[in-house]
Amino acid sequence: MTLLLVERLAKSFGAVAATRDLSLDVAEGSIHAVIGPNGAGKTTLVAQLAGELRPDAGHVLFDGRDVTRLPVHRRVRLGLARSFQISNTLLSFSLLENVALAVQARHGHSFRFWADASRDGRINAEALAVLQTVGLADRRDRLASEVSHGERRLLEIAIALATGPKMLLLDEPMAGVGPEEGQRMVEMLRTLRGRVTILLIEHDMDAVFRLADRITVLVYGRAIATGTPDEIRADAAVREAYLGEEDDELVA
């Protein structure tokens, strides 16, 4: 069953078309990767799916609902959560509080002016459980500014997970992460398979080909191919687009 359906999406900035006639469907429970060379329009695509940018044309359907014109926070409430390419956590908050805020958002409105939020046992327990999922439970009282880059990448995912999503939009979760921590990330994402649908935007070809059920290749804002990892490897147009610098990665 299709969870996310993108129909003929288009977005231009002045004379530059960042997204052109882009269609995409992501099956529920799958890990679907979007790859493409620099400037292919991956970031613009994420921004449109998350609701930060409004497309010029086309539709985004999520869980059977047209969300094209919904603001960011409404999409999250429907179950479409995202992580950021550059870690975007609350640096002066503890890891637990970062996640607890996401749990709190799921529990309804926060117009509660009196009771101490840090003593809400139910929210703290749920937040702790999510931290356990990504393996950060022992760091719960550290401030987000104090942990390593790799741990902050995991926290990014934990925050997105804590919103209770049906689908995660992961914007280059491996960005800037060393091989060891990258391995940790891949393992963690693998444990999420089946529990939550993932749209993975990623540069790390190795990770993509190990994780993804399906891959869409983006070039100049257009989807030039979609298929299983094997199909993509064999696709002539893809090889052409990636010829040169990243050709080796595809073969490997």
Partner: peptide, 27 residues
């Protein structure tokens, strides 16, 4: 009480990173 409450925590979060707060579902 207000700044330590759920409301206050959301407000402090908005000060630090409003984009993040929207991305976890806050208006």
């Amino acid at each position: 009480r207000v700044v330590a409450s759920k409301f206050g925590r959301v407000l402090r979060g908005c000060k630090e990173n409003e984009r993040r707060m929207a991305a976890i579902g806050y208006n």
